[in-house]
Design a binder for these strands. Structure first.
Lengths: 194, 194
DNA sequence: TCGATTGACAGACCGACAGTCGGTCTGAAA
DNA sequence: TTTCAGACCGACTGTCGGTCTGTCAATCGA
């Protein structure tokens, strides 16, 4: 079954590629399964063989994104040791990446509504949020913030940074807004962890 | 046309009442026009006479909520003069109200996805965000924060407070999380505006 | 007073869409 | 060569948002 398996993998990836483009440009609701089939040239049966439904296809696309975003962010903080420095760098890196309209639409706009806030946050939990908590925990150990606030602060920082990213992406002048937002977020984190 | 107009208004309000309950419990996608018709006992023609479409019905429901939320928040800050005090009180009042699951589902989860982030923020712009900016502007005038950061900070605070509200609402122990979140948000705002 | 007009409402109908299902094809293994 | 698992096919179904052609009662103008 070597040849067949390879064919299946290729088809599945093709679905994800095409769906990514369509979801990004037309949104989840604005993208019909029909359109995905037409662009891939595959059949309905093929798609539903690989994915249980439209939502599962979206989830696959989303996870694809998260993998890439996390990899790039890890690159940015490589070699750093100071928790606050790490947090600041990671946040700025994330804002930069969120400038990508595809990330905007899929990760920040559609994902919470399609999956529901809870499941969406559980995905983050395993990745970004967990890291944030670790870094803030380290900051608390250094006496920079109160131990009791670590958990909530992690959420607040995450939400703030996402908001900054949206702000940049939807700005009429993204470049200008980017530096503005980065300045503000840096100041914001400085005050939070002073 | 006095009698007819009154009947129309009553019907319209009935639609909004029923739609509010259904949107809140089953979400936007999970609520069919058919279900709204069945619960109201009205006809499709009637609904589409009063609203151009499902999205417009949702918008009407949303605006209904915003009016109530703003009124309650204004009550909470009545008589206050210190901008920082106002901001803190308003934020805590909002978190309290966002504990309401109806507010959660409609205002925080569905609204951004249904209307799109841009339009959603434009609604806020006229209300909450504008107030935040005013208060932060006052804080800047007092030298508490940099004038340049007022705009971005307003967004970050708004996003943070919304996140705190979600955190409370989705918590397995909302009462405990509420005090925890309020403590953290207060500290958060203190640091931001110190 | 009575036809004209207007706005509220009715419900049959349409097209699009997500998802299902019985069947076919391919290629690896026995 | 036969067998079989898994990839793939496409007609079909149920649901849903939205449209369209009316009907009816309330008001207005002559």
């Amino acid at each position: 079954m070597n040849r067949n398996v390879a064919r299946g993998r290729e088809t599945r990836e093709q679905f994800i590629r095409v769906a990514t483009r369509l979801f990004a440009t037309h949104g989840y609701d604005g993208t019909s399964i029909e359109a995905v089939l037409q662009e891939t040239g595959a059949s309905r049966g093929s798609l539903y063989h690989h994915f249980p439904g439209k939502e599962a296809l979206f989830l696959a696309v989303l996870q694809d994104f998260e993998v890439r975003v996390i990899a790039r962010t890890l690159d940015a903080v490589e070699g750093m040791t100071d928790p606050v420095e790490i947090l600041k760098t990671a946040c700025l890196a994330w804002i930069n990446q969120a400038g990508d309209p595809e990330v905007q639409q899929i990760v920040l706009t559609d994902a919470p509504a399609v999956l529901g806030w809870q499941r969406f946050r559980e995905l983050d939990e395993q990745n970004v949020l967990g890291e944030f908590r670790a870094v803030l925990g380290a900051a608390a150990a250094e006496g920079r913030i109160d131990e009791r606030h670590v958990d909530v602060f992690a959420h607040l920082v995450l939400a703030s940074v996402n908001e900054a990213a949206m702000l940049v992406a939807r700005s009429p002048d993204p470049a200008a807004t980017l530096t503005e937002a980065q300045d503000a977020v840096e100041e914001f984190l400085n005050r939070l962890l002073s």
